[in-house]
Design a binder for these strands. Structure first.
Lengths: 335, 335
DNA sequence: CTGTTAGCGCTTTCAT
DNA sequence: ATGAAAGCGCTAACAG
């Protein structure tokens, strides 16, 4: 592999000079520059980025830790991050935990070993062990999707989105609304969306039927099963014996629920209205098209990258700006 | 940032010794090892991976170039790659071209600059400029999804998958089959799948209606539009005036086509049968569930990683093994 | 405008 | 069993 030293010798200049033409820094006379460039051209020399890093203390890499790349949310966020950072000559080092929470901490260490300039964490939880680890890392880090004390974050306005969505159902005359949620260790998806729903119901003084509030896991089949469970419950509190509407905390859960209902001959939205969260591409093409909440995931990725760069420039570890992105209700025929 | 030198001083040993305990290489007496480990523990020292790379000439990074991460194919492949390489202490450096072909070549240079140990390219074309660039790169590289002379690859058996799928349609009594393809610069998806279709039709001596063979681009709406176009054509060659079946080269195209047909009141599969390729998750949950071809994308990623490691170990740049993965027809109600 | 020198943090002979 | 010395490829004072 040809090095800067070889180039210097061949062009009969010093390594410094070669470095200067490489980086367009300092003075280099035209003819020397030409000579050096010619040699570089001929040899196909490509400078070693990590040798450079050793001196400059900058790897120009940001580590991205995520629970899985196989959701539209994640892949859109990663796309957004990539767009923003590539403009600054940065690249993404990918750390996929495959939903294994322990690996989040492992990967933080790994990324430190790699001396990444910053980290973006697409989080699914805010467990103390994780938060603590992040704080002792001493590397600029921004979290997406969850927020925690003293950590920079870009989050979605889950609470208000859930409230507004719920309000929309209520306005359409629904009172018997079922809710398919997920575990509350996921503060954003599990806790806040549910709280938004409950608070809005309470604000309208509508009783909720506890049996219609169920917890699922993150996949389509679970939406199916959970819907079955809900419909098997009689409405002890409610006037009616079955809900007229369902709010699912993700589009996939909603799709599963719809599948179960269709199988039972329940018409959507005539018999039961439904909505999800996430605005996954397919929701537009479902029959009927699914009402959902668009969170601008790609923007979130871009924004997180911008925040990260801000912090990286500001030499300080102080300040923990948090940005909360807005959302957009996508009203479609399912409601 | 604490370095190996600091540790050495604090433990009153040489850097060499610290290095030895770090890497479990050579002899280190028990008490010295203990002493060093204690200091490492106390200081929270984490060795710099790229400083190590500078000496060892191994970055333990594989670059992954892909057209977009926002398809299930890509994200599954990346997951597969990640699983395989993380077992060897490798990480993924992500290079997302966002469907900009020129960037493929740009990123090859970038990855070389980063001195990645190997590259996996999820390819959408095999243009001469690209192939040439790859060959002069002198870095182990395996291509996924496309194949080219002298380049290692992991590909899907598009040709036979298309033939078998077509045969299945024919066996069910279909002769008037429309085909929604894509541009043939994509040899795998555009050319091979089409060729498989045509050859199988020819083998059964069934005439194809040229007007029912249309070219789309890679999105759902294009499937919709193309289906509209096909149904607007009268069947000049065929006995009937409209196709009784449609083969779309991707699931998304099929979904678009289905949406158009549903809108026209065409029943599936009673009036028109349809199938796609890719086995995207949603196909199971469509109404009716979509017949499709499962290509085991995650396995493809793993396999590509394994091939890459083989090549990286074999010091030679010789040999260009190509593996062709098998597929699985997923027969569902849409056919 | 150009070169000399030193050093980033690590590993690897080669001695001892 | 441990250490000294050299060097990986690059950049950054500092001289001149």
């Amino acid at each position: 592999m040809v090095t800067i030293k070889n180039i210097a010798e061949m062009a009969k200049v010093s390594r410094t000079t070669v470095s200067r033409v490489l980086n367009n820094s300092g003075y280099v006379s035209e003819d020397v520059r030409k000579r050096v460039e010619k040699v570089i051209e001929e040899t196909g020399y490509i400078p070693s980025h990590y040798a450079k890093s050793l001196r400059t203390k900058k790897t120009k890499i940001v580590g991205v830790i995520l629970p899985t790349i196989q959701t539209e949310t994640s892949s859109r966020i990663v796309t957004g991050i990539g767009k923003e950072i590539s403009q600054h000559g940065y690249e993404i080092l990918l750390a996929n935990t495959n939903l294994n929470q322990e690996k989040e901490i492992e990967y933080l260490e790994l990324l430190k070993e790699r001396r990444v300039d910053g980290i973006i964490l697409i989080a699914t939880n805010t467990e103390p062990a994780l938060v603590e680890k992040i704080k002792e890392m001493n590397i600029p880090l921004v979290m997406i999707g969850q927020e925690a004390n003293g950590i920079m974050s870009v989050t979605f306005d889950d609470y208000h989105a859930a409230r507004e969505l719920t309000r929309t159902f209520i306005k359409k005359g629904h009172e018997d609304i079922a809710f398919i949620g997920v575990d509350e260790t996921d503060r954003a998806v599990g806790y806040r969306r549910k709280k938004g729903f409950l608070d809005e119901m309470a604000a309208h003084e509508i009783n909720v039927n506890e049996e219609w509030i169920q917890k699922a896991i993150f996949d389509i089949d679970s939406g199916y099963d959970t819907m079955e469970k809900i419909l098997s419950k009689t409405g002890a509190i409610s006037k009616r014996s079955a809900p007229t509407a369902v709010i699912a905390v993700t589009d996939r859960l909603a799709i599963g629920a719809i599948n179960y209902m269709k199988k039972q001959g329940i018409r959507i939205p005539e018999d039961v209205a439904i909505a999800g969260f996430g605005a996954s591409e397919i929701t537009r093409y479902l029959d009927p098209p699914l009402t959902t909440v668009d969170y601008h995931n790609e923007k979130a990725g871009e924004e997180a990258a911008r925040q990260l760069f801000n912090r990286m420039q500001a030499q300080t570890q102080e300040g923990t700006e948090k940005v909360v992105l807005n959302y957009r209700l996508v009203l479609r025929k399912s409601l």
